[in-house]
Write a protein that binds this DNA or RNA. Structure first.
Lengths: 348, 348
DNA sequence: ATAATAATTGCACAATCATGCACTTATTTT
DNA sequence: AAAATAAGTGCATGATTGTGCAATTATTAT
């Protein structure tokens, strides 16, 4: 017999009305109840089909999306428009404009980890227009994410959040790293190392780009060498100076190219190595990731340009989807970055 | 005798009216029913040709998506409706119905690698209504993909295709593997191996799931052990029997859990180990990936259920986007699978 | 502690969906 | 040209889902 809402209601011993409201995104449903219903629906294999006739009239009402940027005010935003946070906005507002969505952009304090604190209380009460959903820019404390997700549909941009069921739009780490490495391999590099930093907060993109690096090694049939991978494993990390010493040592030992999971790591690397008389693009190859132009560098770094505008657009769009259909499988969208051919990937 | 709608109706024990409505994109047809009808039609070899003269104004507003299933007719389709190809149809049909898109489902020969061959010539010329875009199910020869992509917007389902700029919708390998491994780690496993098979065609999902495995090792701070990884590196592969010997050896040496990148690999593994007196879920833990229920197995495998319906839906949707040419950046969408707790991940 | 207020949930009824029957229209066959 | 076959459509109907309002429960303010 087919699964219907009644089955779910029976299983949870609640009324079918409540089940229906969960799927129709009705206000006034306890988030916990909704979660329980969705979990049971998945378990029983229920498929909710949006009603087809009615969904046109509904979209006429104005929605409001919050854009929360988790960053110190002076650090990121005020600095310049080059910061990722600012670069994402055009895409977001483009989508919002096209679809008559209001935006409410707020900067929140990264050090506030208590969702019940006045900082967030205020944020939520201040507005007359209720938020319908939230876009998250930069990493948030997980407690905050939990609190926000209970109240609103959320979509995260660029940064990802481990195992929690948060939708996320990001650059395609795998393709990016794969392209960079292919470029190196094409130039004759056979021993390619991975150089990162340890971050105080767990940086998921480091792991993701590292895993892309490993995957490419395997597919290109290049051997895995533990000693050419620096600062990925927690138990096997180096201090800043120590790390560079090790990198120097490995370079002398035969590593001809280094993959760095971020541009700023690569720029610093280049600077340090220069002090030791090693020139990037000549004595060794190096690539970054992010496509942030650096001032005061003579060389153009080979890197992957992150498609910020597209990410912003897709994120807003995904959130819009979630507003009308909250019972939807969590998804990650990875957009192709553009490889920027710099001068640092040259053959020896 | 020729195949007609009545045949399909009989086979599915529904009225012919319903079958007719499926092909004419009548509203008020359940997407599941429609998917079942399409599947049966494909199986029986029925091709729907729209009525001739009448469709001047009407059909022009309908777009047509081709769904190409690259599989041997008898192998996959006729077998049962459990095959991935068939399971994707309900989601595709759901989107198509909601958005007034016609579907044209075809099975193509995997061994035909020449796009200019009559096999494809026919496929393209047969129809009066031109395809507006193509959904690809199962891996196609790269020559065919190239040919198709030059002619139509394409989106691939479940399988991925390396570096080419093809949009793709798939299960979230990383989250799936991460959840499975976390489950193992929670149960006390500390030495987790990876066991795969070598495939004649490059299986991207093996690499992707392998890279997810490595990423999780790093994040959980478990050491990388080359000798616990079987049949991922081309230069370091074993024959079938040889591979199991090695796996046995490593298990005796201290590996307590094995991650397999696919259910069928895991089922075979269990069977072989059983012959050697090792019981899954007791003497060692093992997990698969795909959520395909296996007949004749006493134990339920711990695995990840692929959200076929959602994948189908999102793929159709992505293709629809590409048709209206709204977004140019190539993207990969990964949907969360559901971890199915079986009996094979137990602690020793 | 108790009243006032807000948040959830259930009931009853309304709306819509999905499908088969009967009939119409189009295309072949005889 | 009539008969036969195949396919499309209006309508009726039971199944399923959506919604206003009242009842219930939780929360907050006296």
């Amino acid at each position: 017999m087919r699964v219907n809402q009644q089955k779910i209601a029976n299983a949870l011993e609640i009324s079918r009305t409540t089940v229906s409201r969960c799927f129709t995104n009705h206000p006034g449903i306890n988030p916990d109840t909704r979660a329980a219903v969705f979990a049971m629906a998945t378990k029983l294999g229920y498929t909710y089909l949006e009603p087809r006739g009615t969904n046109k009239s509904k979209s006429s009402s104005f929605r409001t999306m919050a854009v929360l940027i988790c960053s110190d005010l002076d650090q990121d935003i005020t600095k310049d428009n080059q910061s990722p946070g600012m670069q994402l906005l055009p895409g977001i507002s483009e989508y919002a404009l096209l679809n008559h969505i209001k935006l409410d952009i707020k900067i929140v304090n990264p050090r506030e980890t208590n969702f019940k604190a006045s900082h967030y209380e205020q944020l939520l009460k201040e507005r007359k227009t209720q938020w319908d959903g939230v876009l998250l820019i930069y990493p948030f404390p997980s407690t905050i994410i939990g609190g926000l997700m209970r109240k609103f549909p959320c979509v995260s941009l660029v940064e990802q959040y481990g195992a929690s069921d948060l939708d996320c739009i990001d650059v395609d780490h795998h393709r990016g790293v794969s392209h960079l490495m292919q470029k190196l391999i094409d130039q004759g590099h056979r021993r390619i190392g991975f150089f990162s930093w340890r971050y105080s907060v767990e940086a998921l993109w480091v792991y993701r780009r590292y895993s892309a690096y490993i995957e490419k090694l395997a597919r290109a049939d290049l051997p895995y060498r533990q000693e050419d991978i620096l600062n990925v494993y927690a138990t096997d990390t180096y201090g800043l100076e120590e790390g560079y010493q090790k990198a120097l040592q490995q370079t002398r030992d035969g590593v001809t190219a280094w993959i760095c999971p971020a541009d700023h790591i690569a720029y610093d690397f280049i600077e340090v190595f220069q002090k030791h008389g090693l020139e990037s693009g000549k004595d060794y190859a190096i690539t970054g990731f992010d496509g942030i132009p650096q001032m005061g560098t003579s060389q153009k770094l080979t890197t992957v340009q992150i498609p910020y505008r597209q990410i912003g657009y897709q994120a807003a769009r995904r959130l819009d989807d979630l507003l009308s259909n909250r019972y939807s499988t969590t998804q990650h969208v990875y957009l192709n970055g553009t490889v920027i051919a710099g001068e640092t990937d040259t053959k020896l």
